[in-house]
């Protein structure tokens, strides 16, 4: 058991909310950040789960991720601009996450302007003139107000490359099966 995702695998995945967090994964992310107590989890408290020994090692991959386009549409409020959603992990049914935003937080530590990281929610938000990108830990990337399709895809690729070091290697290996 090395990462929080390994630990998450042991969870019943009920997202019951009794701990006060919105999902088991959010609770674990908060725990890793020292913001929540595992005893708030009724499953942990009942002794069904072992005590965690979670550590991080930034993963790296040999092959680049494939991007699957979910949609390309005009922006709902600004029809001259474009909004695109892609998934860097096709068949992204894995609830464990793809980008590890806690690792992202420790790497970037708010050093890049216009980049905001929410390790607890598992979201990275990047603002740029060519469009605003949101990257979600489960592998979803959305750009809004993209100047045009070409620049929007460029911004998406840039965000994915930026977060390359945070890709949850183990999950990717599993989903390849």
């Amino acid at each position: 058991m090395k990462t929080l995702y390994d630990y998450y695998r042991l969870f019943p995945h009920t997202d019951c909310g009794y701990c006060g967090s919105t999902s088991c994964l959010t609770m674990l992310r908060r725990y890793c950040l020292g913001k929540s107590d595992l005893n708030s989890c009724i499953y942990f408290k009942s002794g069904e789960l072992p005590s965690p020994k979670i550590s991080y090692s930034p993963p790296h991959l040999k092959e680049p991720p494939t991007e699957k386009i979910s949609y390309i549409r005009p922006c709902p409020s600004e029809p001259t601009k474009v909004t695109i959603e892609v998934n860097v992990l096709p068949q992204t049914h894995s609830p464990y996450g793809y980008f590890d935003m806690i690792t992202a937080d420790s790497i970037f530590d708010r050093q890049i302007p216009n980049l905001k990281i929410s390790p607890s929610l598992g979201i990275v938000r990047i603002e740029s003139e060519a469009g605003d990108v949101m990257v979600f830990s489960e592998g979803k990337v959305i750009i809004r107000r993209g100047a045009d399709e070409k620049r929007a895809f460029w911004e998406i690729s840039r965000a994915v490359r930026l977060l390359w070091a945070t890709v949850n290697r183990k999950i990717r290996a599993e989903s390849a099966h």
Partner: peptide, 22 residues
């Protein structure tokens, strides 16, 4: 923050569905 970004973040992380836009 753009209202659509707030709505997507609410939905993706917590399954909360709200409207965004005008």
């Amino acid at each position: 923050m753009n209202p659509h970004d707030v709505a997507v973040a609410l939905d993706t992380t917590s399954g909360v569905m709200v409207r965004s836009g005008h």
